[in-house]
Each structure stands twice: as structure tokens, then as C-alpha cells.
Amino acid sequence: MWFDSPYYPMLYAHRSEDEAQQAVQNVVGLLHLKPGARILDVGCGRGRHLWPLAELGYRVAGIDLAADRVAEARAGSAQKGIDAELFVGSMLDPLPQPPYDAVVNWFTSFGFFDELATHQLAIAHMARALTPGGALVMDFMNAAEVRANLVPEDRIEVGHVEFHVRRWIEEPFVHKSISIRDGATTREFSERVMLLDRSDFEALFAAAGFHSVQFLGYYDGSPWTPQSLRCIAIGRTFAV
């Protein structure tokens, strides 16, 4: 599996802890959570968003389908002295150890399913894991910007490893093939993500019981426009 391979973090090594800290401070800061609030990162990867959340005084948990990434998150958290609850699991199952004051989903860790109804199921699980009045943050690519400016091909070298990345759109998905040359070894991986628009997220959030959905265009907290690089949706459940 691509997300569980050792090459995945190599290709995305430029996604730094500084970027994660900016996202946490500017985006999660808008939620006005109390110190000690519980936050679950769905699709937590190696944990780079968990750590700045913990440093801000929140109790953090993470879940990811890729066992190797969860192991890295566990090791990194221990090294930093952060007490993080970490789970291997799927967003298509009920989320572990609820309730949470906020659920976050960063870096397009969504959109992988064949049908819109399956994405709705995942968001429903996130909603059910929240306290009344809790918040969901979903950080997704801006589909309008991707359609307008898709880069069809990249060649990237990371140390001795060469990546050849090809991208194309077959609606409603954007596809990516990743060819890797590592010395005498060659590997092939692929990604496919549904191009979910702002209107899709508005409908998905409404169906899951969220209200007052706000959209940002980047991690600096700027508002969403069709030209934005990101589509960050923030919704709250109704308080009792």
C-alpha cells in the first residue's frame, strides 16, 4: 500500500512540522477550544499535526489505516514526551474512544472512496465522535484550483531515490501514478482522490448534522476563493 510504504514520507518530506504548526495555530485557533480539550486526528500519518496540538495544551489522539505511519507517530510522540492515544483503524468504522471536542482531518486524507455515499459515512462517524457543539475540520485540496492548474508530470530526486509522478483527471477523480527507482529496485504506486468541491462539503456536512460551516483557503486562515490552494471546511455540531 502506497500510504504504508517507506517512500510515501520521502516524497512528502517537504510537508514540514513548521507547516503543521501554522495550520494548527491559525485553523484550530478559530475553534476557541478550552485547554485540555480532546482532539482526534483522523488520518494522522506520522503525527506531525498531533505534536503542535499537544504543545498548545490539548489532549491528542490519532488514527490511521497505515500501521507503519502510526508506529512512527507513536515513536515521535514518545521522543517528544507527548502522551498521544494512537490507533490503527479506518474512518469507515466507528471512531475509537469518543467523545472528542474536535476532529481534524489534514492534507487531503479523504476522498479515496468510490461513492459519495461512502464519504458521507466517514463524515457521519466523525460527527458521532464529537461532543455536542464539537467541531470538525477537514483540510482538502481545492478541486476548482486542481482542475485549472493540474501539473501533469514531475520528476523528483530525494537522495538516491528518483520519483516520476504523473497526474491526470478522469472525472470525478484526479489520478496520480508514482514510479520509483531506488538503485536497482523499481516500484509502482498509485493514488486516486475524488474531486470534492466546496458544494460537496456543504452537502456532506449538512447531512451529518453540522451547521455554520466556514471555509478557509489556506493554513494562514485566509478565506476560500475558487483560486485558493486549499478548501478547509470547519463545521460544528449543535450544542444540547
Rank of each mutant, 00 (worst) to 15 (best):
L30W: 09
D41P: 03
W168E: 05
A239D: 06
P9M: 08
S228E: 03
P6K: 11
A206G: 10
A122C: 15
W2I: 09
P35E: 05
P9L: 01
L40V: 11
Y12E: 12
W106A: 01
L121T: 11
N149F: 08
P9C: 01
Y58A: 02
A102H: 03
T131K: 02
A148Q: 04
F205S: 02
V27P: 14
D220E: 12
A148G: 00
F107C: 11
K176L: 14
S109P: 01
P226Y: 06
E145N: 01
T185F: 15
A73S: 10
R59W: 00
R236P: 06
I123E: 12
L56G: 02
N149T: 07
R167K: 04
F107M: 07
D139V: 10
V60M: 00
F201Y: 10
D68R: 12
A143R: 14
A78S: 13
R167V: 07
R46A: 14
G159T: 10
A66S: 06
H119N: 07
L121V: 15
G221N: 04
H119M: 04
R181Q: 10
T185E: 00
P35T: 11
V146I: 09
I156N: 03
A124I: 07
S5C: 03
Y218E: 15
C231R: 06
D68E: 15
T185I: 05
A84H: 07
L204S: 07
E171V: 07
H14Q: 10
V28Y: 00
Q227E: 01
R69T: 02
H160I: 08
G159I: 12
M91R: 01
E170R: 13
R15D: 06
